[in-house]
Amino acid sequence: MSEPMLTVDNLLKHYAGAERNVFDGISFDVPKGKVLVIIGPSGSGKSTLLRCVAGLEPIQGGTIALNGQVIDRGEPGNEKSGRAKRSSQLRTKIGMVFQSYDLFPNRTVLGNITMAPVMVQKRPKPDVEREAMELLKRVGLADRAQAKPHELSGGQRQRVAICRALIEHPELMLMDEVTAALDPEMVHEVLDVVLELADAGQTMLIVTHEMQFARAIADKIIMIDSGGIVETSDDPEAFFAHPTTQRAQEFLRTFEFSRHRRTEKDGAGAQTA
């Protein structure tokens, strides 16, 4: 069994002035080289969970550990403190791709990708540019290296965003509903890239509501609702085919459609006034 890359232990999150906690002590881990997918209904807090792991939101209880080292400890009362004070180096170890595919608009595609490795990781520019071009080639955008973000489609921008996060060689990649804001025809081109990353062994924590995709990519799956884990499974195929808990069953059913056609057997002459 591989060492867990990410361990979340007893996470408690609370918004100032809210009645209930967002999370009441949630625990899970992401094994190294594996993909954990989080699913759940809207408002269940899946994005918040990801943002807590990212350090964008403060936590009030529990711990978050990366590669065995605790990187965040919950402190009650710190609801208003904003982003976690993590060192630059630590932040480069976790990469995040957001739902809104915003790139830095004043820089080219290549500039977007090379900015952080040069400025933060202090790597030499020529090496960084070479690697950036390789990444762009992998996602099929090598010819757009000099383009500005506004010239690209949403799907293209999102692929660049993935490159931008990848070039820092993060140990853990976080993906927050990365295709939710895209037009349907662009969803596949982005998810194909993510699938390829999984095949290459990148440890990932993914929040998504694309069920087919979740089924294909997950090594482990967690369903969240109302601040707690409803169901965990190390066998995603089994989970999707036969979820154990009732809430999971109801949730998965919301993605299916069936049509009730009236047949003659349903009662003749049943015309409503």
Binding site: L56, R91, I94, G95
Partner: peptide
């Protein structure tokens, strides 16, 4: 979200201000 992206990439506050926020 621009500031958040800069944060996740490891930029310091000063770098974020200078290279991301102010140009925009």
């Amino acid at each position: 979200i621009q500031r958040e992206n800069a944060y996740m990439l490891g930029l310091s506050s000063r770098q974020t201000m200078l290279h991301v926020v102010i140009p925009q």
